[in-house]
Nucleic acid binder design. Structure first.
Lengths: 241, 241
DNA sequence: CGGGGGAGCTTGTCATACGACTTATGGATT
DNA sequence: AATCCATAAGTCGTATGACAAGCTCCCCCG
């Protein structure tokens, strides 16, 4: 009668729910190598039949496997087992940015990273993310009054743009850079920010607004250019004449 | 009349599914401390109303939060936020490149980083560094015979360019990326590299040579463009048409 | 022989229903 | 009045059916 061996069927009261049980079974199969990386998981309907549970349960189970990074699912195709971990840390050495050379190198680095991030943000931002950038821009404008927060506000603006690129590598990198970027002015900054003429603040503000407008208008080329310009100018402001 | 602000509603096509979106929102609330450990999450029906999604989606989202150890659920009572895992240090997520989406994001990331590195390399390379790039290019050509080394040889070529940019941030980043870039193909790549037609190899070789020539000729704009083209093409080769 | 199109399969989301468990309410019992 | 318990209401667990969206494959037409 039953075409399926009884072992497979799940039983109701194992304590933590059918979905949890099913996750354990599937995880066991994957870790045991029964289903190799790249291979397809059984379809939802197969699992429904094999384990004798409802689609609700199957979907919750697969959802948990996705969250755990064990499988990836494509609509219309199925779920596929992913390669197993191999932990690699992804961080720019927290060694500080100290020398003058480091500061300039850091800006050159940011030019590559952030101008592309701005371009992607222009293409892929959601309206919500744009709003977040706008808020950061407004905060930045207010930092005129209390310059102590200026650096943090500036970082927020750049971070929000990286987030709008919808690519975790850009946002992760900027996040891990954050402390460095914040602290880098410390050494030679009196020079630049405190002695700055009045025009300095308005010029920087203008650059920020240009970036924002390009992203708002979804013009990726303009966004890349505006970000590159902004950072190049920042570089020039730090460079002794 | 609607007692709920419209911001909360989720929108269909954010790319990774409503459940994933909802998880992000709830996780944000929890990590932001809006819901403290021990407190009760809104009921399923509240979430259905607030976010305008079906119960399926809400249940999948909560299921993922359970799997992540952020909440615990009791039948008949509700879901409760658990105490956060102690660390919370800004240790960069050691997450790797696993999903198909990650692979594409990684290439978009490399486009930003490496095209600028190529541009700087064209401007600042020493003759010695150029020689190193050339050697890597030759090795890459030889990897035709034993395709097992192709990925490593490819990485060497890109790393040598980053080194030639004479900016430790680019080379450090590429170095720390190295293992990831090497292992990323595992899932879906046999397809691309092993089954590759004969034309594939020569096309890639041509792209590499273009990059090399631009750097040799100290043409930074051309070097940026050539690297961007190479990576864009790589992206297209991975992307199913 | 090549390309277009549709049938069929698979996942994504929604809606509804019912069972199981918890909590609160309120009245009946002592 | 205090206690107990039955019932109702709220909440999660599971099942089922339906349709939309995306992918594959194969057949048919040119």
């Amino acid at each position: 009668m039953s075409p399926v061996p009884a072992d497979h069927r799940l039983d109701r009261d194992t304590g933590r729910g059918l979905a949890h049980e099913l996750v354990e079974r599937l995880k066991a199969r994957i870790l045991a190598g029964e289903i190799e990386p790249g291979q397809k998981l059984p379809t939802e309907s197969s699992l429904i039949q094999e384990f004798g549970v409802s689609r609700t349960v199957v979907r919750e189970a697969i959802s948990r496997l996705q969250a755990a990074g064990l499988v990836e699912t494509f609509q219309g195709r199925g779920s596929f087992v992913l390669a197993l971990p191999a932990s690699t840390a992804f961080s720019v050495e927290a060694s500080q940015v100290r020398t003058h050379r480091d500061v300039l190198d850091m800006i050159d680095f940011r030019i590559g990273v952030e101008s592309e991030a701005a371009g992607l943000a222009a293409e892929r931002r959601t309206d919500l993310q744009l709003k977040a950038i706008e808020r950061a821009l407004i905060d930045l404008g207010r930092s005129d009054e209390q310059p102590g927060n200026a650096v943090e506000a500036d970082f927020e603006f750049h971070l929000k743009i990286a987030l709008a690129a919808n690519n975790r590598f850009y946002s992760d990198l900027l996040t891990s850079l954050g402390p460095m970027m914040i602290m880098l002015p410390r050494t030679r900054l009196e020079h630049v920010y405190t002695v700055s003429d009045a025009g300095h603040f308005t010029r920087v503000t203008l650059e920020h607004e240009n970036i924002y407008r390009a992203i708002a208008g979804q013009d990726s080329a303009a966004a890349r250019a505006a970000m590159r310009l902004h950072l190049s100018n920042s570089r020039a402001r730090l460079q002794p004449p």
